[in-house]
């Protein structure tokens, strides 16, 4: 199950067939029993007049981690930012194409991006906890925005921080500002903050690029665990990281999806010469 992507490729259907376009239909299943949680269809994105994504079609498998790799400027960050409609927050940014979440095109006019972002959480490249809030308030920030209260907020804070493997380090300083934490801890706080929303999908945009190797290892372990409970899409420029954490890998080059497949196959037997050139370090 390793192949170059083109829109007519029959074998892509094996990974996960595209979901029906109407809302509310049953998500498609693959032969292997995998569901594609999200489905990107002919996605094009622009910054001003520059086209950064030139028609990308890609599945995001449920309860799996999908890595998006590629050289700088290939559009991989833009791709994940289109999945929760964060791309359009930037001035001059534009998108066409379709992105399905459980069979619903999230770019349909009646979809409120605010609601979408509650279901599709995001962790950014640079840790960005809110400095004016305590650790506890940071974890509950998303909930507060919805003006809702959990039945047991203490339990939610604890479970979110535990899932982010941060609880033991911060349980005694929950009321202090998150800006005193180390970079790796801050990033795990941001993960906890995203998890507290109980999202369906967790998008990670180079979550380790600002971190040292030990903090990186912690986050990678975390992704490995989280992927079974959520659906993870992670952008990384680090190929070792992709091979360590991801079940599926997509190779993006100059705004085009060159190859998509199971991670091991993509790294050991790439079908496209450009993929091979990139993973062997000949460009990028």
């Amino acid at each position: 199950m390793n192949h170059t992507i083109d829109k007519n490729s029959p074998r892509l259907e094996h990974v996960a067939p595209p979901p029906p376009t109407s809302a509310g239909s049953v998500p498609a299943r693959t032969d292997a029993g995998l569901t594609s949680k999200m489905w990107v269809e002919d996605l094009r994105a622009w910054f001003g007049a520059t086209e950064v994504l030139k028609g990308v079609t890609l599945p995001i498998a449920e309860h799996r981690a999908t890595a998006i790799i590629g050289p700088s400027g290939c559009g991989k960050s833009t791709l994940v930012r289109c999945l929760n409609r964060m791309h359009e927050v930037v001035r001059g940014a534009r998108v066409t194409g379709r992105v399905f979440l459980d069979g619903v095109d999230v770019y349909r006019p009646e979809v409120n991006p605010v609601r979408l972002r509650q279901r599709v959480g995001m962790v950014f490249q640079k840790p960005n906890p809110f400095p004016a809030m305590s650790i506890r308030q940071n974890v509950l920030a998303g909930l507060r925005l919805q003006k809702s209260r959990a039945d047991d907020e203490d339990a939610l804070v604890e479970s979110s921080l535990r899932q982010a493997a941060l609880w033991d380090e911060v349980k005694d300083v929950l009321d202090r500002s998150g800006s005193h934490l180390s970079g790796g801890q801050q990033q795990r706080l941001c993960i906890a903050r995203a998890l507290a929303m109980k999202p369906d999908v967790l998008l990670m945009d180079e979550p380790c690029s600002a971190l040292d190797p030990i903090a990186t290892a912690k986050i990678e372990d975390l992704i490995h665990e989280l992927r079974t409970r959520y659906t993870v899409a992670i952008v990384t420029h680090n190929m070792q990281q992709a091979s360590r954490v991801a079940d599926y890998t997509a190779f993006l080059y100059l705004g085009t999806l060159i190859e998509f497949g199971e991670t091991r196959q993509l790294f050991t037997k790439p079908a496209d010469p450009r993929t091979e050139a990139y993973i062997t370090g000949r460009f990028g």
């Binding site: 959480g121 906890p129 507060r144 925005l145």
Partner: peptide
């Protein structure tokens, strides 16, 4: 800008982002 993005990504609208962050 990363603070505003963090807030948007949690499902905040612009007013909430301005008010809370």
């Amino acid at each position: 800008h990363s603070m505003r993005e963090a807030c948007f990504a949690l499902g905040a609208d612009r007013w909430q982002t301005v008010r809370r962050v």
